[in-house]
């Protein structure tokens, strides 16, 4: 019996809500060292990688590795039924049948919820992902996740051009980052400057630029990442015209969630 046990229901609720908009299936790997999740979206433009070390969980027990592809929408629905302080136990039989059982136990209510999920294909993941080198990127922007969420919200409210997927153009130049979206009847632009760390030492916006860069992304990827970014105070955006962009939020030194996104060519 393989049986990871953990107490991070709220965290997983948020992760699954953010990911299930964009990614249908994900590959989950529980091991002694923690959890690794990877998923690719159906248009194969974005890859999400979540790493959460065992120490990130209040309670984490995993004697043997367990890896499987699961449907994210089904999981999000199951987690919506769970209480925030539930203890989650994940069980798969050793003979490797094709289902896994998630049990949510509410110590307070004395209630146990059980969901069986069939294994599904995981759409080409997991992939080998080497640690990325910041030096390879033309520009790196760090800002509070709340600020990033506000920008995405503004762009979304204006960026619906009707007949095609809305896009955003992110440009870094002269120590400022500009986000631009075109809607049916106008455009929306947000410019962020590097902020004085003395004024707001806890919420700096930092822009490191080696050279100017301007890239086009589908807005839906920004929106999904901005939901996931609630897991952390700060986001880091690595931009290059040669490499997939990396949108990252670190989870309190205990892991990270990263979106690798191919910019649009046009």
């Amino acid at each position: 019996m393989l049986e990871p046990r953990l107490v991070q229901t709220t965290f997983f609720k948020n992760v699954l809500e953010a990911l299930s908009d964009l990614f249908i299936e994900a590959h989950f790997e529980f091991s002694r060292t923690g959890l690794e999740l990877q998923a690719i979206d159906t248009s194969r433009v974005a890859l999400v990688a979540l790493v959460l070390r065992a120490e990130a969980f209040n309670h984490y027990l995993c004697d043997r590795g367990l890896s499987m592809g699961l449907n994210l929408a089904d999981m999000a629905k199951a987690f919506r039924c769970a209480n925030n302080d539930d203890i989650i136990t994940i069980k798969a039989e050793e003979d490797w049948t094709d289902t896994v059982t998630f049990t949510f136990e509410s110590p307070e209510d004395g209630e146990i919820l059980e969901f069986d999920f069939d294994f599904v294909g995981s759409n080409g993941v997991p992939l080998e992902i080497p640690e990325y080198q910041e030096s390879e990127y033309q520009a790196i922007v760090r800002m509070p996740s709340a600020k990033f969420m506000r920008i995405c919200k503004k762009l979304s409210s204006f960026g619906d051009s009707g007949d095609r997927d809305p896009v955003v153009i992110i440009s870094v130049y002269k120590e400022r980052v500009r986000s631009f979206a075109r809607g049916k009847t106008g455009t929306s632009t947000t410019v962020c400057l590097q902020t004085q760390t003395v004024d707001k030492p806890k919420e700096p916006t930092l822009i490191e630029m080696k050279e100017e860069v301007s890239l086009i992304f589908d807005l839906k990827y920004m929106n999904s990442f901005s939901k996931a970014s609630t897991l952390s105070d700060q986001v880091t955006i690595n931009l290059s015209s040669e490499l997939p962009a990396v949108f990252e939020c670190k989870i309190a030194e205990l892991g990270y969630i990263r979106y690798y996104i191919s910019p649009r060519k046009e």
């Binding site: 590959h27 997991p126 080998e128 080497p130």
Partner: peptide, 14 residues
């Protein structure tokens, strides 16, 4: 688990 290739080859294919 066994990996199904590298992220760079995935993005090159796209």
């Amino acid at each position: 688990g066994s990996k199904q290739g590298s992220i760079m080859s995935f993005f090159k294919k796209v």
